[in-house]
């Protein structure tokens, strides 16, 4: 989808951050409901970080209110590049898994902005996209560091001693 102006670009960037904020918050809620407090906490933190990014865009652009999605707006994928799909979760997941999800999202975001920076958009848009891509790269690095601090899940992490009653 062409990105005709800086305003348009920034509203997409804002929407990306906002959707990521909301999705991580939903993930936090889901894991809260399923008594996985540790990962819920982590997703809540991720949500807060994304919310800060969204807020910064509003401030940078001097927008007084939240822009809405443009009519007939669509991402090339199913959702915004930084939004983790709902099926990423497992009720027994560990912090490492959550960070893997975050890492995938940040990498998607890098790719999205890189593509625009290298594309045919107006110069101001490409410059802004480059800046955004660099910022996302920093996030990628941060998450990678973070991943080193949490234990890697052992094999069989998803085994439940009270398993679902599937096979006969």
């Amino acid at each position: 989808m062409p990105v005709p102006s800086l305003e348009d670009f920034m509203s997409r960037a804002y929407t990306m951050e906002l959707e990521a904020t909301e999705r991580y918050a939903q993930f936090a809620e889901q894991l809260d409901t399923h008594n996985n407090r540790e990962v819920a906490q982590l997703f809540r933190k991720l949500s807060e970080i994304e919310a800060l990014h969204a807020k910064r865009i509003l401030e940078e652009m001097g927008w007084p209110s939240v822009p809405a999605l443009p009519p007939a707006f669509a991402w090339s994928g199913a959702e915004a590049p930084e939004t983790a799909p709902f099926d990423s979760l497992h009720y027994l997941m560990q912090p490492y898994h959550a960070l893997e999800i975050a890492l995938r999202c940040e990498l998607e975001a890098v790719k999205y902005f890189d593509d625009i920076a290298a594309g045919a958009a107006p110069q101001r848009v490409r410059a802004a996209a480059k800046e955004m891509a660099d910022e996302e790269r920093e996030h990628v690095a941060l998450i990678k560091q973070w991943m080193k601090k949490v234990p890697r899940p052992a094999a069989g992490w998803d085994e439940d001693p009270d398993p679902p009653r599937i096979a006969g």
Binding site: S11, M61, S65, A68, L69, P71
Partner: peptide, 13 residues
């Protein structure tokens, strides 16, 4: 500067 798109009455949330 104004927001590029009129804010919808209500957001999904």
């Amino acid at each position: 500067m104004n927001a590029p798109f009129a804010a919808a009455a209500l957001q999904p949330k």
